[in-house]
Computed example of a mutant assay.
Amino acid sequence: MANRFGHALVTGGAGFLGSQLCERLLGNGHRVTCVDSFATGRPDNIAHLHGHPRFELVEHDMTRPVEGSAVPTDVDLVFHLASAASPKDYQRLAIDTLRVGALGTEHALRLAANAGARFLLTSTSEVYGDPLEHPQRETYWGNVNPIGPRSVYDEAKRYAEALTMAYLREHGTNVAIARVFNTYGPRMRADDGRVIPAFITQALTGRPLTVAGTGEQTRSVCYVDDTVGGLLSLAYSSLHGPVNIGNPDELSVRRIAEEILSLTGVSVAVTTVEGAVDDPRRRCPDITLARAELGWLPSVGLREGLNRTIAWFARNAVADHVSA
């Protein structure tokens, strides 16, 4: 099925998730163009792909038009991942996050429409806000504070979804929307502010693990290999979505901290800090649609995924974090 798409373009391809998507696409036989501005993506994430005969890197800010740039237009498949994704990054880059959700998405959609390519938007579970429905189905409209500190990301993605569906209705563009829930794994930045890299870094450097609020707020964390598999399954299908891509095993943030302490064998305290504004109290996907229509569900268990992630951080990110 993958071979009907020859040339795949990945915006935000040097990010944590984008770089691993680029790898998998290459493994599936695609020619891959990675487009990144390096606002939050890292050159190290794709350094090992340089020299691959079917890989190309184009440094470009997707808030600027593609026309007249080095971004290729002979593409069959466009994955739009370009955006800050962690609260620390999108609050630091608030206006840029809104711009890439609006202008960046339109530029990527126009590229796909002109090329006759399949377009996949990586949206987010944040479109559900602090949900009043549990677990969250794709039919749920969400409970979002449109002016809060998280709104720059939430509303950018909600607008991007609306624009994506407008291109389907008005231009017949072949689109899909994936709503990605919390994903973790190798290549996350130690300082990006998300709970798993923060807890692993704290544990491996012998510091107390800091849990925001009560720690009873829940997350559903999906190992990156499974998330990438879900994105590819949706891209290779004919579904438009939106489709939830996430792990339906719901865990408290405190439980995640305790699992990381158990796996690292570190004996440090778990302390609490003030909770973040508009932090969702519960987050869990209903993946009935992905299971039924794509045959997709996560296969990497929590302990296995955390062990792989801890091992990568021990070899790479923590050493860099300490030296910095």
Rank of each mutant, 00 (worst) to 15 (best):
G104A: 06
G129M: 01
H50F: 13
H80A: 15
P197H: 12
R281V: 08
S19G: 03
R303F: 14
D320P: 02
R254T: 12
D286S: 10
T288P: 05
H134F: 07
D36N: 14
V127A: 04
Q136F: 07
N114F: 06
L25G: 00
P43F: 14
T288A: 05
V100F: 11
V211F: 05
Q20M: 04
R187W: 05
E67H: 06
P208R: 12
V71S: 11
I196E: 06
T11V: 11
P149R: 13
L77T: 02
L232V: 03
R281P: 08
A82R: 01
G51I: 05
V180F: 00
C34M: 05
A162S: 04
L77H: 05
L168W: 06
W312K: 06
L204P: 02
R187D: 01
S37A: 10
R31Q: 07
G15L: 05
V322N: 02
A235M: 00
P186F: 01
S151R: 14
C222H: 05
R92Y: 13
G12K: 02
L49N: 01
A178T: 00
R303T: 10
H321P: 04
S323R: 12
V32W: 05
E56D: 11
R219E: 09
V152N: 03
S86N: 10
D286N: 09
G229H: 08
S262Y: 09
A235H: 00
E274M: 11
S238F: 04
N143A: 09
N45C: 02
C34Q: 07
L204M: 14
A178H: 00
A212L: 09
G230Q: 15
L232R: 00
P65A: 08
R99E: 14
R31D: 07
R118F: 00
K157R: 11
T201E: 13
G6K: 10
P186I: 11
L21P: 01
I256S: 01
D192W: 01
E161P: 01
G51W: 03
L232P: 00
A70M: 10
P72I: 12
N145Y: 06
G6H: 06
L289H: 15
H134W: 13
V221D: 09
L93G: 08
I200Y: 13
W296D: 01
H171C: 14
D278I: 08
R24P: 03
L9E: 02
V127P: 00
G265P: 03
N145G: 03
R54T: 12
H60T: 13
R283T: 06
N3Y: 09
T309I: 12
R281G: 10
A2L: 14
R150S: 07
M1N: 13
P149E: 02
R99W: 07
A311I: 15
P208I: 06
D74W: 14
T271Q: 09
I260E: 02
